[in-house]
Design a protein around this nucleic acid. Structure first.
Lengths: 258, 258
DNA sequence: CGATGACTTGACTGCTGTCAACGTGCGTGG
DNA sequence: CCACGCACGTTGACAGCAGTCAAGTCATCG
C-alpha cells in the first residue's frame, strides 16, 4: 500500500541525507563552506549501507581511496604489531573523520572497525583534493581538521607519557563527555560502545586496571557505572582527577585517533 | 679586498639559499613540486637569522602566522602542564616542519625551542594556503606532510602505550638514526642535541632510566656512548630490542612531533 | 679554579601488570 | 521460555619494572 511505500522512500532519503540536511554539518567537514559550494561537496560523497558491529571499514594496508566521516555509531582504529598485539589508536564518534593518516603513503596504516551499527559517509580523496583547490573554504577546513587531529594526538601523548592510571581514565571520560556534548548528546550520561579492553589498550592500561578504576570512581561517588552505561555524577572532581585544566570546554573536542 | 667581499657575498647567499638550491628539498615541503612552481614557493619563504641554543621560535599561545622548516640544527617542541610539568612532544631535524598543529585554533599549542644553533625557514601560512590552491603539487604535499605527522604521532602512541623502557629507547635511537640517514648523515654515528632529561620526558621515562639504559646498551655492546655522542655498534640487535619490524628503512622517517 | 648543570649510579618503594578465579549478562538453540 | 555457553567484566594476590630520592662524578664555562 501507498503508506508503506512512502515510508520506505523516507527511510531511503534518510540514508542519502545531504550534508546540508545533516545535523553534523557544524562539526564535520562542511564547516566554513559556503552554502552554494556545499552541493559540490555533497556530489562527491558516497553514503554506504551501515556497518554492523565488528565489521571493518578498512584494514591495515588497504589502498587509500577515500577518507570517511562517521554519521552515526562509532568506530575504533587500531594496528596489530608484529607480535600480534593490538594497539587501539582512537575511537570515532559521529562527525569525526577517519583515514587522514593514509594520505602520506597511499595505504591505511590502521584498521577501522565498527563498535556498533555505524553509518559512514565516504569521501573519495582525489575528488576531494581537486575540489579543495576550487573551494578555498574546503581546503582550509581540511587543513584545520588535520591540524586538530595532530593536536589531539599530542594530547594523547601527554596522557600516555606522564599521567597515572587514574588520571588517564578520568581524562578519557571527560573527553568522551565533551565530544558527546558537542554533538548535542548528554554530557553526563552515555554508553561506551567500546569494551574495557579497548579502553585499557587505548589508554596504555591493563583492562583489569580500567575495571578497578571504574569501581573506585563509583565508590567515591564520581560516577555510576552499569556495564556500558556511564553516568557522570561529579564532573568537577573527575576533571580535577584528570590533572588537566578542563574548565568547561577546554578539553579536546576529539581526543582520539583517525 | 675583492676576495673578502666575494666571500661575504657567498655567505649571504648561503643564508638566503633558495629551495631549489637547498640540499633538503627532497624531503622538505618542496617535494613533488614542479621546478617552475618552486620559485613561487620560494618567494613567500622568509629565512631568518639563526636561533641560538635555548632560544624560542615560538611559545605556547603565540598567534599562528607561519609554519617553519628546520634548515640546520634542531628544535624541541613541548608544552607545560598547569602543574608546571613539561612534556616534550618531539624533536625536529633539518627538513622537518613545525607548527602544523597551530592551524586548527590559530595559535600555537606547543612551544618550539632551539636545542643548538638552528636555522629556520619561515613560511607564512595564509600565503602558503593561497599558493596551495594554485599549485596542486603543493596542496598535495602539504596534506602529505600533515598526514605523515599524524602517522608519526600514532607511532609514538604505540611506543608510549605499550613498550617497555628498553624498547622505547631502542626505538627512539633507531628512529633518530633513520632520520639522520635520510638526510645524508651517518646512521651509525651522531650527536644527540637533546638532554637525557628531554629524551626521558619525550619517551615517558625518568631521566635516570634513560641513563641506566644507555649504560646497559653500552655494556651489551649495542652502542658506544660518550656524553652526547652516540655510535651504534649493533643496529640489528637494537632493532630487535625495539620490538618493531625495522628491516632497513621500515621505521618512520620522522617519529617525532611538530 | 670553582661553580653550575648534566649525567651516572645505587637503594628503596609503589604503581600497575600478570595470573587466576569468579560473577554477570546476552544470545543461541532446544 | 528456559538452559546453556561464551564473552565480557570484576576482584584478589602477587610480583616486577620503573619512578623517586639521594649521593656522587664529570664536563663545561665564566
Amino acid at each position: 500500500m501507498p503508506t508503506r511505500k512512502l515510508e520506505s522512500v523516507v527511510s531511503l532519503k534518510d540514508i542519502r541525507v545531504a550534508c546540508k540536511a545533516c545535523s553534523l554539518k557544524e562539526i564535520c567537514l562542511p564547516v566554513g563552506i559556503d552554502k552554494n559550494d556545499l552541493e559540490s561537496l555533497d556530489a562527491i560523497i558516497d553514503r554506504k549501507r551501515p556497518l554492523t558491529r565488528g565489521e571493518h571499514l578498512f584494514r591495515v594496508g588497504d589502498s587509500f581511496q577515500s577518507i570517511y566521516a562517521v554519521r552515526s555509531g562509532s568506530l575504533k582504529t587500531y594496528t596489530t604489531s608484529e607480535s600480534g598485539q593490538e594497539q587501539v589508536m582512537g575511537f570515532q564518534l559521529p562527525g569525526e573523520l577517519v583515514g587522514l593518516d593514509a594520505i602520506a603513503e597511499n595505504h591505511h596504516p590502521l584498521a577501522a572497525k565498527a563498535l556498533e551499527t555505524t553509518s559512514i559517509c565516504e569521501i573519495p580523496f582525489t575528488e576531494l583534493e581537486s575540489l579543495s583547490t576550487k573551494l578555498d573554504g574546503l581546503q582550509h577546513q581540511l587543513l584545520r581538521v588535520m591540524s586538530q587531529e595532530i593536536r589531539d594526538d599530542e594530547q594523547n601523548m601527554v596522557i600516555l607519557g606522564q599521567k597515572s592510571a587514574e588520571q588517564r581514565l578520568a581524562a578519557f571520560l571527560i573527553s568522551i563527555s565533551n565530544r558527546f556534548r558537542r554533538r548535542g548528546f548528554s554530557a553526563t550520561q552515555f554508553n561506551l560502545s567500546m569494551s574495557r579492553s579497548d579502553i585499557g589498550n587505548y589508554l596504555g592500561l591493563a583492562l583489569e586496571t580500567v575495571s578497578r578504576l571504574f569501581t573506585r570512581f563509583q565508590n567515591e561517588g564520581l560516577l555510576h557505572v552499569d556495564r556500558k552505561h556511564i553516568e557522570l555524577l561529579d564532573r568537577e572532581k573527575l576533571c580535577a582527577y584528570s590533572g588537566a585544566h578542563c574548565s568547561q570546554q577546554q578539553q579536546p573536542q576529539k581526543s582520539s585517533g583517525r
